[in-house]
Design a protein around this nucleic acid. Sequence first.
DNA 1: TAATCAATCCCCTGAACAGGGGATTTTGCC
DNA 2: GGCAAAATCCCCTGTTCAGGGGATTGATTA
Lengths: 207, 207
Amino acid sequence: MDKLKVIVVDDHPMVIEGMRAMLQQIAYVELCAAASNAFMALEMVEEKQPDLVITDINLPEISGIELTAKLKKEYPAIKVIGMSTFNERSYISQMIQSGADGFLVKSASKEEIEKAISSVIDGQMYLSVDINMNTQEKKALKDQPVLTRREKEILHLIADGLTNPQIAEKLFISLNTVDTHRKNLLAKFETNNSASLIKLASKSGII
Amino acid sequence: MDKLKVIVVDDHPMVIEGMRAMLQQIAYVELCAAASNAFMALEMVEEKQPDLVITDINLPEISGIELTAKLKKEYPAIKVIGMSTFNERSYISQMIQSGADGFLVKSASKEEIEKAISSVIDGQMYLSVDINMNTQEKKALKDQPVLTRREKEILHLIADGLTNPQIAEKLFISLNTVDTHRKNLLAKFETNNSASLIKLASKSGII
DNA sequence: TAATCAATCCCCTGAACAGGGGATTTTGCC
DNA sequence: GGCAAAATCCCCTGTTCAGGGGATTGATTA
């Protein structure tokens, strides 16, 4: 059986080398390439056709978030795990919105990395353990629906306390449209009123 | 002019000693006593009548949060600064609810401690810089209203998506009462609908 | 090109909320 | 015991939301 082909993307050589060392210890994994920026990453992906890309979020020029979105669009089969020094909630949220399958902190142990990889390959989402996030919050993040730009915009206005008529006026759209978007938001979050909608969105880091 | 009398409360001797060393470098501050638990702290406060108490949050038996509440009740003039290893949002929130005037992470520098002390003595609230909290969120925390137990209970139920009638049924109280509490919540948070109420409460860490 | 999705608009009804007012009973504190 | 605050209850009105339904346009994609 072929090994799992993995590409690591990070602008810090130390991280690359660290990952290389750790991945070498996982029998079924093969680090087939490494990239220090998004352009190089896209080239490598094209060339190597990996099963998994592990990318830093804070890349120069094109961020890991944009890279993830591009990868997922062009190669939906490739799994992507985001990586960051900090467990910033909004980063994780953005990564997931971009289609990432998992998230790791850079301080992760070999065991955690292995677990992340196997989970993601099995089609499950993996989120790194975070002292600032409880299980409920992580669940909220995993189940986070994908929102359109307009929906995000309206979600924020709802959170800011604007009523539907006020939102309609502000965005120069009809009250009915605002209502439709709000209803779609409620459906996506599987809830049935704005208060809990905002709670869920807030826990997910969208707001 | 007399020096500022400070009492430090922490169950780790190292923290006490560290604080002692740092406070010694601040000319106008005098560490008049140290305590390793809340009982001892209350005794020391009684005896020394300090201007400021700096207390750990995670104390054995009686927590720093309860200690703060007791201190603020018995000696409203004494300033209290909470301290914790982690910048846990809910801890900070609870400390402030208990009446604390400031919050420090244990990794704080001498400069930060000095700034916290001078701010608090001047009557201003001081919150330690936190990578996981932006300015807006800190503001929300500072302006956080004090809620009654019932109000907190109802706030959570609103956030969970229950309607007023459902809350009334669950708590065996009248719909009018629920409505009154909700209206009081809106007034305390200076907003005018449940969605933004939940956003503010969420940002404040109450939810 | 056809199909899909996002974004827009419209209609309906009943329930819930927002914003006023006032009043009573517990509960804790001095 | 008396005071203050919390918690409870009640009334009113108009607006907004929640939950159905259906429909059109434009962009993207298969």
